[in-house]
Design a protein around this nucleic acid. Structure first.
Length: 467
RNA sequence: GGCGCCGUAGCCAAGUGGUAAGGCGGAGGUCUGCAAAACCUCUAUGCAGCGGUUCGAAUCCGCUCGGCGCCUCCA
């Protein structure tokens, strides 16, 4: 089976056929950098990361672009409130975004284009849309005329004739020909303060949707492969991107539209008033390790709402400890003769792993395959069938799994600053054990426990790790 | 009003027509000076409820109950 993805455009799971054979192009709607991104935002970015990693694992040459929205109402408001430049203001949150992103092990995208670095491209696109009669200008602002785009509403399956016109239509946009039209370019307003660009369209700033159209077209070209984002972006953001881009190119913007469901926290939508609003650094301060956060946020299928529970940490820790224990077991295995059996297990579990991801990125199924492999490997270790060459085969398989999962932590033994003292205590304990002086042996164990060291006696040697 | 999603064991979570993956937790066992880890066995005759279609349904259809999303700038 090869990769199949659910395409929001057709509401069905389709075989993934890239535009260019062997290559995969992805565009993810990144954060609006007006505040530190929360874990719900990162859940969406993690889904993109998982797809990127799996495509690479499957042999595709991947190009991944994630934009940074550094101009919109909230960023302007924030910068002006503090009296700093928009650039300085957004730089700060771009830095924290990358910091959190790295903490979670989200691989580097090939490009992180910023909206404000692409004003000319956006202006050009608006001018082309005006020429093509898809857009018009009123009082220095440009609007997309949705009536000119027959498929408008298709992505979200919305019937534009029946759309309710609600109070959410901003009062300053009364001059639009049709309330359903959306802004491409906004004429400068006093509240924008110093934030403005003098362009062929006049003094003003771009509308929100425009950057993604301009930048995805610039960096990935026409009809690239996969456009990702959270479900809330289906309408209006992605629908508007489609209208803008296709109004100029007359070709589908992207081949596949992949949307990840929202993250719930403790069963509810995250919100500051409920006190369940967390950033990655909040989680770290609450004692979560990076890989524990990654594991927790990745839980569940991407098209299913996932409930992230702060109380679930212990369960996550125990699950991750199984991977560590397995790699320690392999590391210290001194058996032999299980090569053929091990190869069978690897082939089987890796096939299940691939089948899972191939089926619309069914991560839970793929993860189950890895847990089953862990049990297979542990059993073979226990049966003393694993030795040097088998160990390498098994570890290589684990590394392949981890190239997609990113939380197995197979780094092996980092040099511990207290290693010498710890090993001295272990020596002392083993000497006492040899002399059957259990009191003294337990004293040494207690000393180690106090230092947060857990020891395990195995055949011939004692293994230790930090709790 | 329109479009759409979800309800699976104590908890988390796959499966969407062929007889319930996986993780945590719990019970028992093997191993061990003690312990830890590991391994083995058990832990949903049933998938919100009620009908229907079918040889067969958690999976399809209808209704009911209970959560929830989107409908112009929230991932």
């Amino acid at each position: 089976m090869a990769l199949r993805l659910y395409n929001t455009l057709t509401r069905s799971v389709e075989p993934f056929v890239p535009r260019d054979s062997g290559k995969a192009t992805m565009y993810t709607c990144g954060p609006t950098v007006y505040a530190r991104a929360h874990i719900g935002n990162f859940r969406t970015f993690l889904v993109s990361d998982l797809l990127r990693r799996y495509l690479a694992y499957a042999g595709y040459d991947v190009k991944w672009v994630m934009n940074l929205t550094d101009i919109d109402d909230t960023t302007i408001k924030g910068a002006n409130a503090e009296g700093v430049s928009l650039r300085d203001y957004t730089d700060r949150y771009i830095a924290s975004f990358h910091e959190d992103r790295r903490t979670l092990g989200i691989t580097d995208a090939d490009l992180y284009p910023r909206a404000t670095d692409h004003i000319p491209e956006m202006v050009k696109m608006v001018e082309d849309l005006i020429t093509a009669k898809h857009a018009y200008v009123v009082d220095g602002s440009a609007y997309f005329k949705i009536e000119s785009f027959p498929n408008y509403g298709k992505l979200a399956r919305l019937n534009m004739e029946e759309l309710r016109v609600g109070e959410r239509v901003a009062s300053d946009e009364y001059e639009k020909e049709d309330v359903r039209d959306f802004a491409l370019w906004k004429a400068w307003d006093a509240v924008d303060g110093p934030v403005a660009w003098d362009t062929g369209l006049g003094k003003g700033r771009p509308g929100w949707h425009l950057e993604c159209s301009a930048m995805s077209l610039k960096y990935l070209g026409k009809g690239f492969d996969i456009h990702l984002g959270g479900v809330d972006l289906i309408f209006p953001h992605h629908q508007n991107e489609i209208a803008q881009t296709e109004g100029v190119t007359h070709e589908p913007l992207a081949r596949y539209w992949v949307h990840s469901e929202h993250l719930l926290v403790d069963g509810q939508k995250m919100s500051k008033s409920l006190g369940n609003f967390y950033t990655v650094s909040d989680m770290v301060n609450m004692g979560w390790k990076a890989r524990e956060i990654r594991y927790g946020l990745l839980a569940g299928h991407y098209r299913q709402r996932t409930n992230f529970q702060a109380s679930g940490l212990e369960s996550i820790r125990q699950a991750l400890a199984r991977f560590e224990a397995c790699s320690v077991n392999l590391e210290h295995a001194e058996g032999q003769g299980g090569r053929a059996e091990l190869q069978d297990r690897i082939a089987q579990r890796e096939q299940e792993f691939r089948d899972g991801f191939d089926d619309d990125l069914n991560y839970p199924e793929a993860l189950a395959a890895v847990f089953n492999f862990v049990r297979d490997a542990n059993t073979l270790c226990q049966e003393r069938k694993i030795g040097g060459s088998e160990r390498d085969l098994a570890m290589e398989a684990m590394k392949r799994f981890d190239s997609v999962l990113g939380f197995l932590d197979l780094s092996g033994e980092a040099v511990d600053p207290e290693a010498a003292e710890i090993e001295a205590l272990i020596e002392a304990r083993n000497a006492a054990r040899k002399a059957k002086d259990w009191t003294e042996a337990d004293r040494a164990r207690d000393a180690l426990t106090e230092r947060g060291i857990v020891i395990e006696d195995r055949a011939g040697k004692t293994v230790w790790r930090r709790k």
